[in-house]
């Protein structure tokens, strides 16, 4: 078929597409460059870490966050594409949450930035649903047998964020110090937040 682009190198297709779209005023190159810079440099898991640290430090904020993730995250100034409906799932001693998007790698961009490559990998997307305990263990997180694992599949407009458990030994820490402990992997649910000095 003559309309098949797959034989053309992706670099060439992207460049051609960009040139046509800019020429026809369908894409503003400045807007495009702003977005790219934003996701390459400015928006990353630190946003989510601030949300988690605030939830750990402020019970009222935490209650609001679990009730309405999108609004509570926007309170801190984090909003944008892929953040229209964020639901926060809290890890407890009985329940471990982990997020996945089996169909297309949806991800809460405003709080975590763009997804890491393993999150988009077919193996992660299919196995996290089928055998979460095994896969988590392979990724370095052994979840105790009596802890329930909940897998949240972002198959609609909903984007999930995991609120990890606050590690012990952090009682006197400020929000800023706490945010420094929170990793992207913990907010996806493939890791726990390590206590200070154990990281």
């Amino acid at each position: 078929m003559t309309t098949d682009t797959t034989r053309v190198p992706v670099e060439l297709r992207t460049e051609a597409l960009e040139s046509i779209l800019v020429e026809r005023n369908l894409v503003d190159p400045k807007v495009m460059d702003t977005y790219i810079k934003m996701y390459e440099q400015d928006i990353g898991p630190m946003n989510g870490a601030k949300v988690v640290a605030k939830a750990w430090s402020d019970p009222e904020y935490k209650a609001r966050l679990l009730e309405d993730g999108t609004a509570s995250i926007a309170e801190l100034g984090f909003k944008g594409p892929q953040g229209e409906h964020i639901v926060v799932k809290e890890n407890t001693p009985d329940t471990h949450n982990v997020i996945v998007c089996t169909l297309c790698s949806c991800y809460p961009w405003p709080v975590l930035g763009l997804p890491p490559s393993w999150y988009k990998d077919p193996a992660y997307r299919s196995r996290m649903v089928r055998e979460p305990r095994t896969l988590l263990s392979e990724m370095g997180l052994d979840v105790a047998g009596d802890v329930d694992i909940q897998v949240w599949d972002s198959s609609s407009e909903v984007r999930y964020l995991v609120l990890p458990q606050r590690p012990s030994g952090t009682e006197g820490m400020t929000e800023e110090e706490l945010a420094g402990l929170v990793t992207r992997d913990a907010m996806v649910g493939v890791a726990e937040v390590a206590a200070p000095g154990e990281g």
């Binding site: 992706v10 960009e18 390459e40 898991p45 870490a49 990793t183």
Partner: peptide
């Protein structure tokens, strides 16, 4: 894992493809 400047694209064209859709 938490660096905001970490490599999220493996080649420049990937970031252009993302930027086109967003713009």
């Amino acid at each position: 894992p938490r660096s905001n400047g970490e490599l999220v694209f493996s080649a420049p064209w990937e970031s252009r493809a993302l930027g086109l859709a967003l713009a």
